[in-house]
Write a protein that binds this DNA or RNA. Structure first.
Length: 932
RNA sequence: AGGACUAUAGCUCAGUUGGUUAGAGCGCUACCUUGACAUGGUAGAGGUCCCCAGUUCGAAUCUGGGUAGUCCUACCA
């Protein structure tokens, strides 16, 4: 083995072996366990959030696979209608053409080409993370099989009267020329203006002043509304206004929606271009005046002057024209929420179009019930509230998109615009007896991507066919996802799956936090603070990192800022930490919080942890093998791998075996509760602070000293390699590569067989192996060693110098422990001699430490540094004194003694007695030294 | 406006049903190349558990009220 851990030397190699051998496929035996990957965007690339999420899923999948479950991790990607179409359109634009020139079929061909080209990126990245999904079952939402499911769902919902077509106001993206859902619109507060216009009354008796943030919409005004109780205006209700610039006569209406306090108390009403106004228009039967084209330019229904103008140019012109007419009262600065498309960033317009909708309320009722009844549980629980609050106030879902890339809506229209829904034109003709000469035209629109992802859990398993996989693995076990996607996807999956499968898509929704950068900022390409998980695995030099982060940044100022920031944060670029370290970092951060700040400092610690495991294993192999100069095995030592039982276990052996059981238990509890931070912490602690720091150190005296028998040496070798082997299996779900690499080298020494650690059994706690006596004895040993080390450290005694040690005031148990552990003590504390003082025997002048009631004494041979030792003891005395005061206060309080449980009181009493005794001893020692 | 969440060491975070000497990693200080590991070892420093009040024998933990931050939902033209 290399002297240091080199992740790149082992990772891809093992991954290829696993995949080639089909280890990722379900075993076909055992209780089924299934996770569906939240399908990443096929043309995207992996970001830190994906890395986090996939690492968690992989740990769950590997954990259950090793527990013997029939485990399926279903993988696939999503066609991401808007995002993908945008990418391809940008490419066409660069080539000086566009989709309309190409035509629909050609364009879709281009998209498929792009998918072929870039679709592999994300799946390759997933492999680098060590993910173990069943690649042979990979699905894509645009696959033929999946399309069948989508079509079936649409048709059935239509037949169940849960899908309808209607003309409504939608969120219109004028750049993409499509409707988008509420969830795809982000409203941020921006600086704007509130323009005040005078609207003259038709009868010439004066004017009203209305305020607006979007002056151009006045071309579509149908009314002016005031509050019916507003003393200032209520007499005007029923009169009319002559709309300036347009000349239309519009009514003044009363509606209590109007806030008398805001602005002037008069509101211009534009039912075709505002959601609230639309509703008011319905209430008052106001006409709809659509003034925009699909591009959000002014259309032909407006006065000629403005036709063809962009909405924002029109705004300027209208303000100027009204000003010229003396109708501009004033312009106030105003902050307002501006709705923007989450993909395009352009201002979204409420726009009147024909669209398809899903009637969600009946579906939502069932979906709410499933969570209320506990058929689906959210982890952490609080997210259920978020789910309920959204579901209880759900709006009908606009599922049509005016795109070309996506699942085309299975609906046909005849010349009269009558709609027929069916699986194909032939089927429609047949079913409705439409003669061949009647021309049918398929709907041009496609379905919202989330409509198809809503079918993911059962669509990927073959539905509508009743496949074996569908029967075996649905409902799935757990969905691992971020909270940002609960509405988009989780809720819709629950609704659609319940309706079609009559069962839940998954039993548990594990909601993890969102990965942010070291400053707590959301990682985003436009901010330039993204990290590519692959760069953390392979490393990247500073220049490449800067180039990567600023790529595509058009604004020079922003570019400079990001460059500066990157150079400051990562002056040396990123080191190659390897997949296992990256994964471990993710797990350590996977607590219940909503934000996960990814601090690069932490990954280094886990790379070191891998190195620790690596070197501990090297040590174990050095002792369990006969090696040549290159460190390769010549033959195996007897580690009891043949099943022989002529070995003896030391107290350390029994102790580490007990500790192993405990960590197995803690690990399982952590994983089952989705607390990967706790599971990983328990494992880290065990490996580093118990196995490496103590157990391997305690093995050294046995293996290197003639004081120990062959049976004892064998017992140690046996334990050492078996505990290591078992620990590797325990750690495998979190760190797949390093564990496999080492496991292959130690498995036979531990008497274990198997082609891969991936399918080896997960170790589980065996309570009968927890030897409490061994635990207590090793605790005693650690106490003494730490006491000596403390004296050494604080008294500046060189670690190279062996020192004599005296024990005073020890109990029978102390003496027993001492006799059993002499060699360990001598070696680990570097002792020259050990002397047990009987009662009344005087020790030489010494530095002192306490282990329970027993004193350990390091004679200072007249060289004692009085000041240093006094200071050291006084520090201890201060600490104990403070504690004694606290405990005495408690015990002197009759209320405490009366009301607290007896065992708590007793515990405090014991503590007090122990501390008082310690205090006395320390005080004695101080006065003794003072006499010098 | 309504709601949710968060506040613990310099930094990133744990802290189970109230009883701990309030922990970990990183960082920091001192010493150490000892035969698994300097990607290491040993020792150490570092905390008003955001603030106030309450419940309780006892509060980081429970309740109420503040403050600060983050996020979601709904928004006033």
């Amino acid at each position: 083995m290399d002297k240091t851990y080199q992740p790149q030397a082992i990772e891809t190699n093992w991954y290829e072996t696993w995949e080639k051998n089909g280890y990722f496929k379900p075993s076909g035996v055992g209780e089924p366990y299934c996770i569906m990957i939240p399908p990443p965007n096929v043309t995207g690339s992996l970001h830190m959030g994906h890395g986090f999420q996939e690492s968690i899923m992989d740990a769950l999948v590997r954990y259950h696979r090793m527990k013997g479950h029939n485990t399926l991790w279903q993988v696939g990607t999503d066609h991401a209608g808007i995002a993908t179409q945008m990418v391809v359109e940008r490419q066409l634009d660069a080539q000086g053409t566009n989709r309309h020139e190409l035509g629909r079929d050609k364009f879709i061909e281009k998209v498929w080409e792009w998918k072929e080209e870039s679709g592999g990126t994300i799946t390759q990245q997933l492999r680098r993370l060590g993910a173990s999904p069943d690649w042979s079952r990979e699905r894509f939402t645009m696959d033929d099989g999946f399309y069948k499911a989508v079509q079936e769902v649409f048709i059935q919902l239509y037949e169940d009267d849960l899908i309808y077509r209607g003309k409504r106001l939608v969120n219109w993206d004028p750049k993409l020329h499509t409707a988008v859902s509420d969830l795809e619109v982000l409203s941020e507060e921006e600086d704007g203006f509130l323009w005040h216009f005078r609207y003259p009354l038709t009868d010439g008796s004066g004017h009203l002043v209305v305020a607006t943030t979007r002056p151009e919409t006045m071309l579509g005004d149908s009314a002016v509304a005031v509050h019916p109780n507003d003393e200032r205006y209520k007499d005007l209700i029923g009169k009319t206004i002559t709309l300036p610039l347009v000349g239309r006569e519009i009514p003044i209406i009363g509606d209590d929606y109007v806030d008398m306090e805001f602005g002037t108390g008069c509101v211009k009403i534009t039912p075709a271009h505002d959601f609230n106004d639309y509703e008011m228009g319905q209430r008052h039967n106001l006409p709809l005046h659509n003034i925009f084209t699909d591009d959000a330019e002014i259309n032909h229904s407006a006065p000629e002057k403005y036709r063809g103008m962009d909405r924002f140019d029109a705004r300027k012109q209208i303000v100027a024209d009204l000003d010229a007419l003396g109708l501009l009262e004033k312009i106030d600065d105003h902050k307002l929420k501006v709705p923007r498309g989450d993909r395009t960033g352009v201002v979204i317009e409420p726009y009147l179009t024909d669209q398809w909708y899903v009637k969600t309320q009946p579906l939502a009722d069932e979906a709410i019930k499933a969570v209320e009844d506990g058929d689906i549980q959210f982890v952490p629980k609080q997210y259920e509230n978020m789910y309920f609050s959204w579901m209880r106030d759900i709006q009908d879902w606009c599922i049509s998109r005016q795109l070309w890339w996506g699942h085309r809506i299975p609906a046909w229209y005849d010349e009269n615009g009558k709609v027929y829904v069916g699986r194909s034109e032939e089927e429609v003709r047949q079913k409705h007896n439409i003669p061949a000469q009647t021309v049918l035209k398929q709907d041009d629109d496609v379905l919202d991507t989330w409509f198809s992802s809503g079918l993911w859990t059962f669509g990927t398993l073959g539905w509508p066919a009743q496949t074996d996989f569908l029967k075996t693995f649905h409902s799935t076990d757990v969905l691992v996802t971020g909270f940002d996607i609960i509405f988009f996807w989780v809720a819709r999956m629950i609704m659609l799956t319940l309706h079609f499968k009559k069962e839940v898509p998954f039993h548990t929704v594990y909601v993890h936090g969102l990965v942010r950068d070291g400053q707590g900022q959301k990682m985003s390409k436009s901010k330039g603070n993204v990290l590519d998980p692959i760069d953390l695995i392979d490393g990247i030099d500073l220049e490449s990192l800067v180039a990567k982060r600023t790529a595509g940044m058009m604004v020079p100022r922003l570019r400079e800022k990001i460059e500066k920031q990157t150079r400051k944060e990562f002056p040396d670029g990123l080191a190659a930490y390897g997949t296992d370290a990256l994964r471990y970092t993710y797990y350590s951060l996977a607590s219940t919080g909503r934000d996960i700040k990814f601090d690069v400092g932490r990954i280094e610690g886990f790379r070191n942890f891998c190195n620790k495991i690596w070197n501990a294993s090297r040590y174990v192999l050095m002792n369990c093998e006969v090696q040549n100069d290159a460190g390769d095995r010549v033959s195996a030592q007897d580690c009891g791998q043949d099943g022989s039982d002529n070995y003896e276990l030391s107290v350390a052996d029994r102790w580490i075996i007990a500790k192993l059981q405990q960590v197995e238990k803690a690990f399982a509890e952590g994983v089952e509760a989705y607390r990967f931070d706790l599971a990983s912490q328990a494992l880290y602690d065990f490996i580093w602070n118990e196995y490496c720091s103590w157990y391997l150190e305690l093995s050294k005296p046995i293996l290197t000293s003639d004081d120990f028998s062959a049976a004892q040496k064998k017992g140690t070798r046996r334990t050492m390699v078996r505990v290591l082997e078992e620990t590797l299996r325990l750690a495998h779900p979190l760190m797949p590569f390093i564990t496999e690499e080492i496991w292959q080298r130690v498995k036979d020494l531990a008497g274990v067989e198997g082609a891969t650690i991936m399918t080896a059994a997960l170790p589980q706690c065996d309570d009968s192996q927890i030897d409490q006596q061994a635990i207590a004895d090793v605790e005693w040993l650690k106490g003494v060693i730490e006491g000596v080390r403390n004296i050494r450290g604080e008294m500046n005694i060189s670690p190279a110098k062996s020192i004599p040690l005296y024990f005073a005031n020890g109990s029978d148990n102390d003496q027993r422990c001492l006799n059993n552990n002499r060699q360990f003590l001598t070696r680990l504390a570097s002792l020259e001699s050990i002397t047990w003082l009987k009662a009344g025997e005087e020790a030489p002048m010494s530095a002192t430490g306490l282990v329970g009631d027993m004193e350990i004494l390091v004679p200072m041979a007249g060289l004692i540094d009085v000041q240093a030792e006094t200071a050291r003891l006084n520090k201890e005395i201060d600490r104990i004194t403070k504690d004694i005061e606290r405990v005495e206060g408690k015990l002197n309080n009759p209320k405490f003694v009366d009301k607290a449980p007896a065992e708590v009181v007793q515990k405090e009493k014991d503590k007090l007695a122990e501390m008082q005794s310690a205090l006395t001893k320390l005080a004695d020692q101080v006065s003794k030294i003072a006499e010098l």
